[in-house]
Each structure stands twice: as structure tokens, then as C-alpha cells.
């Protein structure tokens, strides 16, 4: 289709020029610099830099904790979205609004308060620590804070889709003899599935790159509670730029992979 508007509406060239210039200067060129820097290492050196035992442990923890948090968020997010769409209860609008708090709250604040809540003297730690649950300075703590960070993603992707599920579909299922549970598990959940997966992927991707909140709650012990972004900072502090860039590329590869996946998922959920 030939573009009709370009003839009529003004400032196409100017806007496109500014958009591309700004995008290049701020995003594309700096990201290229990262690849350039890493390419100064030989392949062996690159491998040695990104595949140390300490780095492997960090990748494992980053992926594992993000995955655990994203899985928790699927459950939590579905319940919250369901309640917000289907039921009326007191202060519903308040609860609806605070779902977005993890988007708006600086991650440093989240890390700070989570570390104080789950220590032995904290509000929640006083009950959990005697049970042997260490919610601060532990892997559990990382999963907890990543769950907080990722909570809005599943809720906000599932909520609009659930709102648009036609009531006739459920009534049809009921007329065909399905129990309420069968209707939900066989009719509603499958129709929400693309949205759930998209929300999961978004939460997971966010967890992979998260730094601010995790450094507060993890304790950053190598091999135990050190995540991959912390490793980059450590390399930088030793002025080992090439190694930092190399690890950054591993992280970038993971997040670009997720970005592509999320785009595919969104296309799929629009045209399943």
C-alpha cells in the first residue's frame, strides 16, 4: 500500500531524521561499542572471560531465580487478574492501582525494604526465620524481590484479555454440560494462554537484567548469591573493560533472545 499521508501530513523527513539520529546516538552506537570492545579479545580469551566457574554460577543463579520468580508470577498474576476482572470487593480500585507499584517504585527502594523485612528482626522475618526460611541475603531473597519486580507483567497482560472473554463462550460451555472447573480449565485458561506466556516471558526478561533490588537482598557472595550483572560491575571496578563487555554480551544475547520471543508471542496472541 502506497503511503497516502506522506504527501499530506507535514514533517515526515524532520521527524524521521530526528528519531533515527537520537536512536543511533543514544542506543545503537553505544551498543555497538560493547560488541567492538568484546571483539578485542581473542575467541579463547572471550570464552575464558565469560565461562569461568564463578560466571557460570552467576548465570545459573540469574536464570534460575528469574525463572522461579516468573513461574510464581504466573500463579500470583493469574489469581490477581482474575479477581480484579471477575469480582467486586471493597477497595478494588485501590488494589488495581497498586499492582503497578513495582513499575513505579525505584528498585533500590524495593531491595532496601525487602532486605529489612525478611531479616530476623523484620516484620516478616520474625515469623519466617524461626521456621528456617531465610528471606534476606539468600537465594530465596533474590526470588522474592524478583517476584515483586515482575508481578505487574502477568497481571497486566492477562487482565485485558480476560475482560474480553465473551460471556457467551462460558455460557455455551455450561449449556454443553461442563462444570465450572471444566469451563475454566478447558475453555478460559486456553484462551488466556498466549497472554499468560507473554506475561511470563516479560517477567522473566525483566528478572534477567535486574540489578538494583538484588544487590540489596542477595549479599553478593560469589558462587552463592552473586548474579551476572554484579559480575559486570566487579569487572568494571577492576578496570577489566573487555571482560565486562564480554559478560555484557552474554546478557544482551539472553535479553535479545527474550525480546524476539516476546515479539513472536505477542504476534501469536493477536493471531493465534
Amino acid at each position: 500500500m502506497i503511503d497516502v499521508n506522506r504527501r499530506v501530513l507535514p514533517a515526515f523527513g524532520l521527524s524521521l531524521g530526528f528519531t533515527l539520529l537520537y536512536l543511533s546516538l543514544l542506543v545503537l552506537i553505544p551498543l555497538t561499542a560493547c560488541f567492538l570492545k568484546a571483539s578485542t579479545l581473542s575467541l579463547d580469551a572471550l570464552w575464558a572471560a565469560v565461562w569461568t566457574p564463578r560466571a557460570r554460577a552467576a548465570y545459573g543463579l540469574t536464570i534460575g531465580a528469574s525463572l522461579a520468580a516468573a513461574i510464581l508470577n504466573v500463579g500470583f498474576g493469574f489469581i490477581v487478574a482474575w479477581v480484579l476482572v471477575r469480582y467486586d470487593f471493597p477497595f478494588k480500585r485501590f488494589f488495581d492501582a497498586i499492582v503497578d507499584l513495582p513499575f513505579a517504585l525505584p528498585t533500590a527502594v524495593a531491595g532496601l525494604v525487602y532486605s529489612s523485612l525478611y531479616v530476623k528482626s523484620g516484620w516478616l522475618g520474625q515469623f519466617l526465620v524461626p521456621l528456617g526460611i531465610q528471606g534476606a541475603y539468600s537465594r530465596t531473597g533474590i526470588v522474592l524481590v524478583l517476584t515483586f519486580i515482575g508481578l505487574p507483567f502477568v497481571v497486566r497482560t492477562v487482565q485485558p484479555v480476560l475482560e474480553n472473554v465473551e460471556s457467551e463462550i462460558e455460557e455455551a460451555a455450561a449449556c454443553l454440560g461442563a462444570s465450572r472447573w471444566q469451563t475454566i480449565s478447558r475453555v478460559i485458561v486456553p484462551s488466556l494462554f498466549p497472554a499468560i506466556v507473554t506475561g511470563f516471558a516479560l517477567a522473566f526478561a525483566r528478572g534477567l537484567g535486574e540489578y538494583g533490588s538484588v544487590v540489596f537482598v542477595s549479599g553478593n557472595l560469589p558462587f552463592k548469591t552473586e548474579i551476572a550483572p554484579v559480575l559486570i560491575v566487579a569487572s568494571l571496578e577492576q578496570f577489566n573493560y573487555a571482560q565486562a563487555a564480554a559478560i555484557a554480551i552474554v546478557l544482551l544475547a539472553m535479553s535479545f533472545g527474550m525480546l524476539v520471543l516476546i515479539n513472536l508471542l505477542e504476534r501469536w496472541s493477536k493471531h493465534p
Binding site: L23, A33, L208, L259
Partner: peptide, 27 residues
């Protein structure tokens, strides 16, 4: 899609790329 790119980049990496360009040992 490129506009969304910074969302996919870990904040630490975002900081790093500017250090690589403008830092003491940067380009």
C-alpha cells in the same frame, strides 16, 4: 522494535556501554 530495545537491556549493561565509550580507557 528498536525503540523497545532499551527495555531488554540490563541497566548495568546500559551503564557499561557509556563507560566503554566515554570512560578513561574508552573510545
Amino acid at each position: 522494535s528498536l525503540i523497545d530495545l532499551p527495555f531488554a537491556v540490563s541497566p548495568v549493561v546500559a551503564g557499561l556501554i557509556f563507560v566503554l565509550i566515554f570512560g578513561l580507557q574508552g573510545y
